[in-house]
Write a protein that binds this DNA or RNA. Structure first.
Lengths: 156, 156
DNA sequence: CGCTAAAATGATACAGTATATCATTGCCAG
DNA sequence: CTGGCAATGATATACTGTATCATTTTAGCG
């Protein structure tokens, strides 16, 4: 597990590299996402930021922060859960991962999220299914409702 | 394309077979889903039922109807879109399909939905990914944001 | 430096999705 | 025919997300 402030620095560097700005507020939201390591709703994050920094953000503001982070590939929106999660590849040097199709495993119980890479052959088959059915894939992101190891153990 | 009233009869028979009841209201909701052939939100369906039958259902009621239909495998909830769609396998004689992992292709533009079967080898790989990451799959349902052929043609 | 345009943020209101809770009705087994 | 359970009604409210317009901050430029 990487140091969070280090990750934030890297994120800022990534933004600088193509002329966008990781402002204080944006950084706070990202920091909260990184610290929790879990998926959080926009409203969860409003609470987190308030808690950690005493900064009360309006919903509109929070959604703007999140849109920015997602557009910069610093975070992902999980549509299945209506929550957001930090990208697990921020500190990778290149953008080689950003062009892969991510597969998200979302723990229904504790909102822990693991972002794993899908085998490219598997993606090929999925998209093949899609085009055979006459559809075009828009946002190739696979999300699955799961139970993480810890929560499965507790439940048993 | 199968006749809708025939599908409804089959659905009722399926319910009877294990002692649950496809009441008038439940049947109306299912009929609306079948007629449209598209994904509809709970509130869309309230309008549809009102339109077709003059029956005004409260949100609470509609969500109960939908929970029932989903639990009977007569409909599916599409979490990506927060919408509901009729199961495309109601009229299959056995429940052989219900144990497969469905893959839903959702048209972002017109909400048309196709439910296709995923190759079992592909499922094996997906679930393999999941268990290697220490997770247990809860609701194995793959949903993908797409554009259907018609809408892609219009957009061009 | 001071101006200006664009980017970022603030503030208010509201639309859309979903659930909690308690009351009432209808059905059928004994 | 009645007691209990399944189904539905009714009201309120919580959660998720967006529209709109105002204000502040920043970067670039003469």
């Amino acid at each position: 597990m990487q140091d969070i402030s280090e990750t934030l620095q890297q994120a800022e560097a990534n933004c600088d590299a193509h002329g966008s700005r990781l402002t204080t507020k944006r950084k706070r939201v990202l920091a909260c996402l990184l610290e929790s390591g879990r998926a959080q709703s926009a409203y969860d994050l409003i609470d987190s930021v308030k808690q950690s920094y005493g900064d009360h953000m309006q919903p509109t503001t929070m959604y703007r922060m999140l849109d920015f982070l997602v557009s910069e590939n610093l975070a992902h929106k999980l549509h299945l859960a209506n929550k957001y999660v930090a990208c697990s590849h921020i500190t990778c040097d290149t953008c080689e991962h950003s062009h892969e199709v991510p597969q998200f495993l979302i723990c229904n119980a504790c909102n822990r999220v693991d972002e794993i890479r899908i085998d490219s052959e598997l993606i090929r088959q999925l998209t093949n299914n899609v085009s055979q059915a006459g559809y075009t894939l828009m946002s190739p992101q696979v999300e699955l409702h799961c139970l993480c190891g810890d929560c499965a153990a507790k439940a048993a």
